[in-house]
Design a protein around this nucleic acid. Sequence first.
DNA 1: TAGATTGTTAATCGATTAACAATC
DNA 2: TAGATTGTTAATCGATTAACAATC
Lengths: 212, 212
Amino acid sequence: MKPIKISEAVVRRLPVYLQYLNELSKREVQTVSSQDLGHKLDLNPAQIRKDLAYFGEFGRKGVGYDVTYLIEKIRQILKLDQPLNVGLVGAGNLGHALCNYNKYLKDNMKIVAVFDADPHKYGERINNLIVQPTSELARLVQELNIRIGIITVPAPEAQNVANHFVEAGIEALLNFAPVILKVPDEIRIHHADFTTELLSLAYYMETGGEHA
Amino acid sequence: MKPIKISEAVVRRLPVYLQYLNELSKREVQTVSSQDLGHKLDLNPAQIRKDLAYFGEFGRKGVGYDVTYLIEKIRQILKLDQPLNVGLVGAGNLGHALCNYNKYLKDNMKIVAVFDADPHKYGERINNLIVQPTSELARLVQELNIRIGIITVPAPEAQNVANHFVEAGIEALLNFAPVILKVPDEIRIHHADFTTELLSLAYYMETGGEHA
DNA sequence: TAGATTGTTAATCGATTAACAATC
DNA sequence: TAGATTGTTAATCGATTAACAATC
């Protein structure tokens, strides 16, 4: 039915479009052109049109894209029009921070359970969630239909947590620990390692940076 | 002297190499081949050799790469062999979490100042840092030679903080708020927005995901 | 209608991979 | 020497951009 393979680059731009469209929607902007979008997001307008065209004809020639309609369509493409439950292991600062992002996710994607291996944390409240022992992971992944796992434990424990998630039948993982994890090929894993990000920035610094 | 333009993709892989090499070093592994690296990091060995070859001849034919030597070389390429000071605005959970990553950065890159706009947070200790009022940003960026800024404030304040950083003479920014920021072209800005990351994962979920 | 902007094809550009001579 | 692995060129692959007919 849809034999065209969509590249990862395209998929990663869709949430960015969505984010800005939501902003426009809040400002009650009705319509946006690929030119507008491209200017704001620093992307080529042709690229934006092509990205969207992979999934259908969402615009009107001579007019542009209806903001509300395009939001709806992108949400469908990303499958955000159906519930998608997320579980998080590692109730440290980073874990707390991510739980607070639930409000940005709104939609149907939600962190529905938080786990930690430290007994001192069991029962702690994070927003409307209560920290559970990691031993409950497998059971709750099943029970709550958790399909995406977030890993925010220290690096040495990350692989272990990943293994638990995989055994529990998780479909995808988002890893924040600064290590490369091995998981079966059928599990999708994204790395959101901020150290990597920061170190690569260093490359672009002018040398001999002491000014003055 | 070096007229070859290095692509961003290459630069972003270097810290990943570095991370794994550090791991090997800790395990006292002496030598590694592009094949080993490729297998571990899920990259084509030819690509790894090519990436490294942009910067020099670091390997030995028939042998591979000396782990310690390659670490040293990559650190030089990324300019991690000289001090690089980082400032962070937003002492919330995420800010705290990132400060704890200082230990992973070790090297010469360090978060040397933390700022927040909330007077209740002034004076709060995070590891060995004390939260400063954002009004001190410009002064301390100069005084401490801060060259990279990290933004971990709520979305509505992010642009404002970015402006302050730019006025203070920052060279690069790492933004964690889920908004697109406008900064002058000469400032390098990377977005580390975890919502984008998570939403794009949704695309790869099987539809009709309720199992059972 | 005239002006604007899409969807899409073709052209360009760049990045990845294969292949292999050089050499440890 | 034989086997292994680099550095590098050439081939392939894929992604971005330009261009334009279609049409609102």
